[in-house]
Design a protein around this nucleic acid. Structure first.
Lengths: 206, 206
DNA sequence: TGCTTTATCAACAATCCGTTGATAATCTGA
DNA sequence: TCAGATTATCAACGGATTGTTGATAAAGCA
């Protein structure tokens, strides 16, 4: 995957400056409003230099993030093997912690990139609709926060995102199931969790 | 919310033609590459007419989708009241079915808009990482598909999206919890579900 | 050091932008 | 129905961004 053949320091330096400029500009203006001109200006490089390495801003972003994603994969893979099968909810899987740790190290970049919708806020709006629906449902099912396994706000966000993700998956796969079946499945997994049997023992440790 | 005061048929017609053109162009080229020129050309309208109603393509998209979102809210709200508290996993909440029904009626638009990332594929890549992680974990926890509450592929997508959603929430809220705590919470809710007690009775109905 | 790669610079045609003012078409309400 | 108001059309503008060019300077490599 990662080729370490060519390491001309000029190239590395240029790419890094362009990447930093891009991320910074995304935060300032949003990805769509960012221009190649602005990137090279902030990076204090000539515009022609940009086109020497990238075809456009998409290409720049892709190359930059791919490195980060590779690093994330690596961090999660190695530690996953080490703690394989150790599913204790109190001391969670090491690779799982690594996920958050990695995000912490590239805090700024993850924050900027994940804040960008950019299909302007449509996802956010739909998530809001789902969140409200879930919040209402949770209040009916369990008004008492003490009987929830995790903080209410986190749970709402959790299931709203899960629902949206499955909806997108459902659309992209050309409706592999009926709407009613989908609703039933999501309902089921939300209330019962993914496994039919594991629950009892886990609860005794609380 | 929805003002039904002004209904000049020319305006309605123009807006609809522009909306249709936009959605169609998004599908063809992606939202970022769409220009106002292209929209008006496809809609067979003058470009000046566009600026008579919208400031830019974002504004057009926002106005168009807002109507759809409002309709979705309405469909889910009315039916939610009707079936309130009826949480049977076999015949799911009516408003939940409505959610999928609404998406079905605006199939094309939802499909196009939800397929657009547009933070070019970064979300998708991260979702892929999470999916792999979850798939591995599920295999360890429960290799037998018969003991899963829902189809495996759906479950993977479900929890990958949920995790990503919570991660975004976590970032946007400036790390309200530590990485380890986050990992532990997500682990817990994934295995046990959101409620500490409800599970047993539900299972007996299977 | 000498050769190769990379960065700079100015300039280009092309595209898209947002707005203007003047005119024509269409709708609304009395 | 018809007059006034609203909306759509058209051409044209200055400005900004794009992607590319060829020639030159700088930096890295062996």
């Amino acid at each position: 995957m990662s080729k370490k053949e060519k390491v001309d320091p000029r190239v590395v330096r240029t790419k890094r400056m362009l990447t930093d400029a891009l991320i910074s500009l995304i935060e300032e203006q949003g990805f769509e409003k960012v221009t190649v001109q602005a990137i090279t200006k902030k990076a204090m490089l000539n515009r022609a230099t940009f086109y020497l390495h990238f075809t456009d801003k998409y290409d720049l972003l892709e190359q930059s993030t791919d490195d980060m994603i590779d690093e994330l994969k690596e961090a999660m893979k190695t530690s996953f093997v080490a703690s394989k099968g150790a599913y204790d909810t109190e001391s969670p899987n090491e690779s799982f912690i690594q996920l958050f740790a990695q995000i912490g190290t590239y805090d700024y970049i993850y924050r900027v990139l994940l804040s960008e919708s950019t299909m302007p806020h449509f996802r956010d709006k739909l998530t809001a609709v789902l969140s409200e629906f879930i919040a209402d449902g949770m209040t009916v099912m369990q008004p008492d926060d003490d009987l929830l396994t995790i903080p209410r706000e986190m749970a709402i966000r959790f299931y709203a995102s899960a629902f949206l993700g499955v909806i997108i998956w459902w659309l992209k796969n050309d409706y592999p199931y009926t709407a009613k079946y989908m609703a039933a499945q999501l309902m089921k997994v939300t209330i019962q969790g993914p496994y039919k049997q594991v629950v009892i023992e886990q609860k005794s440790s609380l």
